[in-house]
Design a protein around this nucleic acid. Structure first.
Lengths: 349, 349
DNA sequence: GTTAGCACTCTTGTTTGTTGAGTGCTAATC
DNA sequence: GATTAGCACTCAACAAACAAGAGTGCTAAC
């Protein structure tokens, strides 16, 4: 059977309608679409065809049609019209993000919140992946009371810290920090392994007086703090929107998704599975590998720094989500973040 | 009417039962409680009395009784028996918290997760309030590419940072950091105001060559970063548990609470309203000022440092929550955190 | 090729009756 | 005088029966 232009238009109309109402769409409703100008009987015939082709599903005889996963897929790939975001929304976004530019973690968090405000769906964002980020400085602060703080700063401006319970005194702390900074700065997290640490250990042992035990202790913590850099944070926002959708009236289903979203491990797997490119990525219903998302759709986009993927922004909603709007929102926000992140880097080149 | 011993025992039995089942409790069920050894008819009479006294409510004739807010209140204050946590739970807690001791933020976050695991209710925790925390060090790092990072460290080991887009060079950064540290260390966030900053501005202007614009810029950001210290973070965990309770089968109600919990402003108000003492605090149903919590109970406890309240851990659940268990859990975890936090401070005194 | 018309299907909402848990009251019992 | 057995009564919850309505597929006419 041929998916001619008319069938495409009808399919589009059905899915548009279903996205709005969440109710099976009957032939009568589509016959009222002006541009088509067809009677319900004709639509019925076409609908039967579209069902046979796998794009529609009939929940039961005498109900209207509902898009199948394939239907949504085709809609996303070839049918849906572009969504135009309002100017106020765009300006608002500018304003909100600009304010946060001075704190990397918060910038990303805010980006997630803006996305959920734009789309009205649940969103998640990951903090920039730092495994290739270069270390800029290591600081060691003796806080007194037998506590010492190790602080690692990357060239992207991310800061991680770690406390250990021993006291070095201010002088020793400073000297140690200087050695560590000179030995490690410019290296990426991936380049620092136990061997490298051992090498530094030797240098310190020869130029400073520190008990071997303290030294090992400190270096372990430095190593741990550095490794901690590559641990991506994930922020989820607007989970409550899930309860808005009639498809989650069933509390058991909603609960399943909530549980899934509250477990960071699940989200990490989810993120790892997404693509790496610049484009927006969509996973519809059963295409999801994670069981609880089998009747959700997931739309993700990468943001990047130095043309390298650094993190993801994603939207999770019912399969009948407003894809056009989500695409437009993610597109806008990801390019915006890219611009902010790369601003400084471009300056230097 | 007199609330004699028998009435108390019956009330306790009813509430215990209701906490377990969430179903109105009938006289038959209570007549089966061995220790009482009373017939259902007697119980009925007593129940009628308890209702008249305001401790019980009958949803409709021919239904059993449900505790009123006053009933719960009396139960919490005078009736409930102590709950004994299992040894494995306690040991597990030790282990989990000990691992996190090296990162203040994470320690607190973990404490919330443990509480939600122990109680199976939604929990929240606030990061330690830092308005009285003393500044230990200020560091300024030139990241290159026209970005400079300001890092503030408190004596508690909390680290906050802020990025600004100007370049000072390494030497200037270090010198500036040294001046700021010497002028600000030992002061609490509250003690640093615009006047103080202005004073520092003068010192810097006289001893360094910096464009006045950069200087103002930097000091603004330093001030902002310091102010940011006193912004308490709130972590919420195990929200999904709310959907487990039959009282939230109604999605609209659940949604209301979810919305409430996702808005940090609401939570901040909630926290501000709680007591300041060492004791566990309970707010039952209508006693809550926040509308969406009117049929929830809220149990909070403060954790402290230097005998000063620093933050809160709280549990939110249905009014028929297992108060005994929640009390025991919160008690355990708060004393544990207190111990960990004060460990170092005790050393120094 | 399109559409009006019609019989048919199946969900949804409503009504009605039934069941059962639980009550309050009274009278008998300890 | 306190306790309890017994009984009539109430009301939510469930199920069966029914009506209404939305939507379909098919046929025959346009």
């Amino acid at each position: 059977m041929d998916l001619n232009d008319r069938k495409r238009k009808i399919l589009q109309a059905i899915i548009d309608e279903y996205i709005g109402t969440a109710e099976p769409v009957g032939s009568r409703a589509i016959s009222k679409v002006k541009e088509l100008g067809l009677s319900s009987a004709t639509i019925r015939n076409e609908m039967a065809d579209l069902e046979e082709m796998g794009y529609l599903i009939q929940p039961h005889t005498s109900a209207g049609r509902v898009p199948s996963d394939e239907g949504y897929r085709f809609y996303v790939n070839s049918l849906m019209s572009r969504y135009r975001l309002g100017m106020e929304a765009i300006e608002n976004l500018h304003l909100e993000l600009e304010k946060r530019v001075n704190q990397l973690d918060k910038l990303i968090k805010k980006a997630g919140m803006i996305t959920s405000a734009l789309t009205e769906y649940t969103t998640f964002v990951t903090s920039p992946e730092q495994s290739l980020a270069k270390i800029s400085k290591i600081d060691i602060v003796d806080l007194g009371s037998g506590r010492t703080l190790v602080i690692v700063v990357t060239q992207d401006g991310l800061v991680r810290n770690c406390m250990l319970s021993l006291s070095l005194g201010n002088d020793n702390s400073e000297r140690l920090a200087a050695i560590l900074t000179s030995k490690l700065s410019g290296l990426s997290v991936d380049e620092i392994d136990f061997e490298k640490i051992r090498e530094i250990e030797a240098v310190i042992a020869s130029s400073m007086t520190l008990s071997p035990k303290s030294l090992v202790n400190i270096l372990n913590f430095v190593y741990e703090t550095i490794s901690d850099l590559s641990a991506t944070e994930i922020y989820v926002d607007n989970v409550k929107s899930i309860l808005k959708f009639p498809e989650y009236r069933d509390v058991a289903k909603a609960s399943e998704i909530f549980g899934f979203l509250e477990n960071k491990e699940n989200l990490k797997k989810l993120i790892a599975s997404g693509g790496d490119g610049k484009n927006i990525n969509v996973v519809i219903g059963d295409e999801n590998t994670a069981e609880p998302l089998k009747d959700c759709s997931l739309v993700t986009v990468n943001y990047s720094l130095d043309n390298r993927t650094r993190g993801k922004i994603g939207v999770i909603g019912p399969k009948r989500m407003d894809y056009a709007k989500v695409f437009a929102s993610l597109d806008l926000i990801s390019t915006h973040i890219d611009r902010i992140l790369n601003l400084y880097h471009d300056d230097s080149s």
